[in-house]
């Protein structure tokens, strides 16, 4: 049996290599479609709001996950937020060192219960702090495709439009 046939030569165990040869195309769904169209066309964020539970969703959902009510009113909530939490990343996916550290943060969108995970741009690791106000920085309109990377990141709040 297996246990009595001990492996004495560690070079001996053999293996079979392979991979799973599929790729995916995801639709955004009803709420996702509205959310990313607003980013692409208007450079702003949309939310849905459940009045029964007094909770708002960014990115929006077509239902309240607490009470299951249908949500179909979309509210423009602007692009400002606060840093809820952050991490400073020094490593690449393959374990090599990044040229410059990158900050990834969870940003709570102002006036909502929702938020986004995204990069922080224009604020150094020494300056960043929890609760710091930030604002989304978008790619130029012509280059936006309706995807999460239409947002370059979140940077310091500038005056002017919310």
């Amino acid at each position: 049996m297996a246990i009595t046939e001990k492996i004495t030569n560690t070079m001996k165990p053999t293996f079979w290599e392979g991979h799973i040869p599929v790729n995916y195309v995801y639709t955004y769904g009803h709420a996702g479609e509205k959310f990313f169209r607003a980013i692409k066309d208007k450079g702003t964020f949309l939310a849905t709001y459940c009045s029964a539970c007094d909770i708002s969703y960014v990115p929006p959902k077509i239902y309240c996950d607490r009470c299951f009510t249908k949500l179909d009113r979309y509210i423009d909530v602007g692009t400002r937020g606060f840093i809820e939490t952050f991490t400073v990343s020094f490593m690449n996916m393959d374990g090599s060192r990044k040229e410059r550290p990158r900050i990834l943060a969870m940003i709570r969108i102002v006036g909502t219960d929702g938020g986004l995970i995204h990069y922080i741009e224009g604020i150094g690791p020494d300056e960043i702090a929890l609760g710091m106000p930030v604002q989304a920085v978008f790619k130029p309109k012509g280059k936006r495709t309706g995807a999460i990377d239409d947002i370059i990141g979140f940077g310091p709040v500038t005056r002017g439009r919310k």
């Binding site: 639709t27 769904g29 009803h30 239902y63 249908k70």
Partner: peptide
């Protein structure tokens, strides 16, 4: 091919 996400489909049936 549904436009809905998997979550949205699940909600529609469950609701």
């Amino acid at each position: 091919r549904a436009q809905e996400t998997a979550k949205e489909l699940a909600w529609q049936a469950t609701k």
